[in-house]
């Protein structure tokens, strides 16, 4: 448990807790961004440069902005302040949240504890040199996992075309 891991974990957890508890919706979004950035820091701490930087580029740079746009272009920012704050409502919301969190945590813990890396003895684990990590990822994407890569590309193209069609369809109605 090194100091950097502690700090980053606290940052991530703090951001996540703040995202749940802050009053104004845009503050919650910014706290979520902090949590995502903390996650990226954790990846970088583990030496996974590509994943960590891609996390910042995609999540902080694109997903957070998307959420922000969604909050702004709808009336979410105002509705949040009129939430149901009765005792009954708050208790049931809290209970539901805790139950979901416990279920997700249980599944993740089972998966992690039973994964091959943890069950193998520590002596046989070799450190992946970060020097070759980028090339390994590129190699794997282009050779072993090329079919999933192409399928993802197809899916993204379909999403893009769908977005364009959705935007186009509004024009005849507007006329």
């Amino acid at each position: 448990m090194s100091l950097s891991f502690l700090i980053l974990a606290l940052l991530t957890l703090g951001g996540a807790v703040a995202a749940m508890t802050l009053h104004r919706l845009v503050h919650c979004v910014l706290a979520l961004t902090v949590a995502l950035a903390g996650l990226a820091g954790l990846y970088l701490n583990l030496g996974a440069q590509f994943v960590g930087l891609a996390q910042i580029l995609v999540y902080v740079g694109a997903v957070a902005i998307l959420i922000v746009f969604a909050v702004l272009l709808t009336r979410g920012a105002e509705i949040a302040s009129q939430m149901d704050s009765s005792r009954q409502g708050r208790f049931s919301a809290l209970a539901g949240g805790v139950a979901t969190a416990a279920a997700v945590f249980a599944v993740l813990a089972w998966v992690v504890l039973h994964s091959p890396t943890l069950s193998a003895p520590a002596a046989t684990m070799t450190q992946v040199a970060p020097q070759a990590a980028m090339q390994q990822i590129g190699d794997a994407l282009m050779r072993r996992y090329v079919l999933p890569l192409e399928v993802m590309g197809l899916m993204l193209t379909a999403a893009l075309i769908g977005a364009v069609i959705l935007a186009l369809e509004e024009k005849p109605e507007a006329q």
């Binding site: 910042i56 580029l57 740079g61």
Partner: peptide
Amino acid sequence: LDAGVLYFFAVGAVAELAVFMAGW
């Protein structure tokens, strides 16, 4: 950094968030 160019673009993406924060 091994992924220097990616780092550069990632940091540039953070600047957009700062712009939004200023405007909002």
